[in-house]
């Protein structure tokens, strides 16, 4: 291949891309600088672009706060239940829908699809969850969103392309369909399972909505809701006259808490990068 000449287009587009990356990095960088600065250091610096002081006080404060630790634990439980429960149920539904001989298959398919187009909305759901005693329990965090019809269809589209011979061989070996799903179908669908897992883990780790709507017990607040209450209530307070006398958590505290909330995703990120493309491709166009 011949070497292309560097043109004006390359220069302009390179600058635009670099600027975009810079604009995205600045808030994250500021967060790190603020989280690690001392109170005096924070007051002295205006824009927090260059670290001038160093302290891990707020982190030790956070890690010794039972509220935060409990919140992390709740979030972890929520991730595990929402991810594994969601994945298993979606996979079971998806696999069942690949079976052509199921009675009423078309009806069941439409029954499931319909929920993608229409839902009852948050208010009836809330009333209903209250009626069946699910609000204010840990189950209200993941049960209402456990099955995502979208992921169920993704899995179904992926399972359909698995050669039928694999399954027939397993049937001859005496496996039942449930064993086939968990021992053959899921293991051979690794990329799509990995992509869906990634999306589910991120979704449940970040979630605050279910907790905000259905949970009234501060004891069972996940980290996301605690973070929202700290950060957003502060921003809202700043815009109301009440703010004058109120004691607000320090900015270092907020930023350190934000960092802690980001941590698991940061850890996960390098391992899942290779599944991004698979994840969005199966999500959008099926050919």
């Amino acid at each position: 291949m011949k070497v292309r000449k560097v043109t004006l287009f390359d220069v302009v587009s390179g600058i635009v891309l670099a600027l975009l990356a810079l604009v995205l990095l600045v808030p994250f960088w500021q967060m790190i600088v603020v989280a690690f600065s001392t109170t005096e250091g924070y007051v002295k610096s205006t824009y927090h672009l260059i670290p001038t002081s160093f302290s891990v006080d707020v982190f030790s404060q956070l890690f010794s706060s039972s509220e935060i630790m409990k919140g992390m634990l709740i979030s972890l439980i929520n991730v595990l239940c929402g991810w594994l429960g969601g994945l298993i149920l979606c996979a079971m539904g998806a696999y069942a829908l690949t079976k052509k001989n199921i009675i009423g298959r078309k009806f069941i398919f439409n029954f499931i699809i319909f929920t993608m187009f229409f839902n009852g909305g948050i208010i009836p759901l809330y009333i209903w969850l209250k009626k069946i005693y699910i609000t204010d329990t840990i189950f209200c965090l993941f049960l209402p969103t456990l099955i995502s019809t979208f992921y169920l269809l993704l899995l179904k589209n992926s399972f359909i392309s698995i050669p039928a011979e694999m399954e027939e061989a397993a049937l001859i070996d005496g496996y039942n369909e449930m064993q086939i799903l968990f021992k053959i179908i899921i293991p051979v669908s690794k990329p799509v399972i990995a992509a869906v897992s990634l999306f589910l883990i991120v979704q449940y780790w970040n979630d605050y909505y279910n907790a905000m709507m259905f949970m009234n017990k501060p004891d069972l607040y996940p980290l996301g809701l605690i973070l929202r209450n700290v950060i957003i209530s502060k921003q809202a307070l700043l815009r109301t006259p009440v703010a004058a006398g109120a004691v607000l958590p320090s900015e270092q505290y907020n930023m350190a808490l934000t960092m802690i909330a980001m941590l698991p995703i940061l850890v996960l990120y390098p391992f899942v990068q290779k599944y991004f493309v698979a994840g969005v491709m199966i999500g959008a166009v099926k050919e």
Partner: peptide
Amino acid sequence: YVYLMLAIVLVWYIAFAYAPMFG
């Protein structure tokens, strides 16, 4: 076994997607 798996999934849909619709 397929019907069993399907039943579990459909129970979820009835309890958490269709019940609120009637609500």
